[in-house]
Design a protein around this nucleic acid. Structure first.
Lengths: 147, 147
DNA sequence: CCATTACCCTATTGAGCCGATAGGTTTGAT
DNA sequence: ATCAAACCTATCGGCTCAATAGGGTAATGG
């Protein structure tokens, strides 16, 4: 019952794209570049990028001038979107053979309510917020990497 | 990132104890009885009972007239207590080598807030609520098993 | 046109957790 | 003493996760 590193890497990946885009970069960004900059295993990141593409969060361009770009504005991409893609449903209940039917139903309802709370919370945090705060925290000395 | 069957069984187990207690039963309840009644693998339930004991939610009595009892009133035992014992911290973030320190910090904070929401929700649901609703839903024809 | 580059896809591996089972030890009432 | 129950430890198969490997496909630059 934990947030996997696939999710964390996906968040960093998308955030990196958002930051580059905010800094005026219009060309696709190479995966290798991001992998090196953030010390993310390249081949693992590749799979994550493909997943992000399959759910429509990024676009990929092939060939020598290829790379990845966000396919939507970072304002409309929420953490809930991303989590949904990487983790599926949040803390689903294990289906058990036994137990009491009544209690099982009560538990299902209770956890559904808890799940909704988190989804609302994560749905209220956009990639843009993350990227902007991250940019604001960067030291001027390091800004050159993003301009 | 899911609620394991250990947790679900634990909930059924404690709920069963609460129901028996509400129905005037003062003697310890045999694990074997609960396991059969709720179709829970006995040996698995045994481990869960020991865990519940180790965190102070139940008392165990040995010997031929032994069994388990709640060690607190069901009103003061919340789902949050139980989940804490069976699952540990709720959806912890995977620790990754790479990524941006700023983003990692933002994520940690965001998920901590989400976690608090769920903990408050689950902290507000007591074992007594569960047990009472379960009792109310039982058909009179089945009440004999609990009197 | 063709080699390079980078995206794209599938398979596999090793570690670790989960659900369950098994076997034994200790305790306490009769 | 004996029996039944709580208590403890070890182990196992199955699964997921993280990471690696190897190749296929498209598009650009020369």
């Amino acid at each position: 019952m934990k947030v996997t590193s696939k999710t964390v890497y996906a968040l960093h990946f998308l955030c990196a794209l958002a930051i580059k885009s905010r800094n005026g970069e219009t060309k696709p960004v190479h995966l290798r570049e991001i992998a090196e900059e953030y010390k993310i295993p390249f081949k693992f990141l590749e799979q994550i990028a493909i997943l992000m593409k399959s759910v429509g969060l990024v676009k990929g361009a092939r060939g020598k001038t290829g790379g990845y770009q966000l396919s939507q504005e970072p304002e409309v991409i929420s953490l809930a979107h991303i989590l949904k893609a990487t983790e599926g449903e949040l803390f689903p209940l294990a289906a058990v053979e036994g137990g009491s039917a009544v209690v099982n139903a009560l538990l299902a309802e209770t956890f559904a309510q808890g799940r909704r709370l988190v989804e609302e919370k994560l749905g209220g945090v956009s990639l843009a917020e993350l990227a902007d705060k991250a940019r604001a925290d960067m030291e001027p000395a390091y800004m050159m990497y993003y301009l």
